[in-house]
Amino acid sequence: MHQTLNATPQSPVVSLKNVHKSFGPLKVLDGVSFAVDRGEVLVLIGRSGSGKSTALRCIDRFEKIDSGEIVVCDHRVSDPKLDLRALRQDVGIVFQSYNLFPHLTIEENITLAPCSVKGVSKAQAKEQARQVLAQVGLEDKLHQYPEQLSGGQQQRAAIARSLAMQPKVMLFDEVTSALDPELTGEVLKVIEALAADGMTMVMVTHEMGFARGIANRVVFMHRGKVHETGPAAILTSPATPELAQFVGTGL
């Protein structure tokens, strides 16, 4: 697979500029801006309701923004004429609740999109399924059904399913929130390996220890705004009292 580079190597893979979004009277995003460069891992943290998940979902246009601009891999996400499916071929997303297709085997879950969307041949897609499953340590689960896997294994399979589409950026929306600490660990290891391979990632997480270890940049959201942003170090020495309180209670 050839890797299409962005128009200019310096242009960020994901950029949000002054993004506003309301659900009815509730302002969820109030002028949010941040950018993610190639190979960078950006971690979004904040209290429930701070807007971090909404910000993440706007990147893949699961939510439409009211104003502002979002550009992802040269797709203008805020443009009404956006080619949604082209955007989503470049962006992989993994959810809290795995969302594997229960009636399909793990292999079928993984090969479905490459075959139907990209027109990859069945044989090639199966070979690729083996590769991505090996990447997440599940090569022996190829022919199992999702319900036969533990939560952590299902989440790793969901990550593999996204990887099979060879995305340019991966979004993780609280992917370990439904898992116990042991299973969380195995999923986080997979994400760390992806980061080490240079995958560009944006993730929402409540795992502060993990965020410290993996983040190139942390964005702390508070009341719909980017309240504080900086390298992972801000988690240990926060500048604002809100972040101090958040990490204080989070640890």
Binding site: R85, A86, R88, Q89, F95, N99, A113, S116
Partner: peptide, 26 residues
């Protein structure tokens, strides 16, 4: 569940493909 459809949309499947593969059979 809505999440099934979102996962399929996230994989860039078309509406028809989602109906056929993800909604109709289950």
């Amino acid at each position: 569940p809505r999440g099934q459809i979102e996962a399929a949309e996230g994989l860039a499947l078309s509406r028809a493909q989602i109906y056929w593969h993800v909604v109709m059979w289950p």
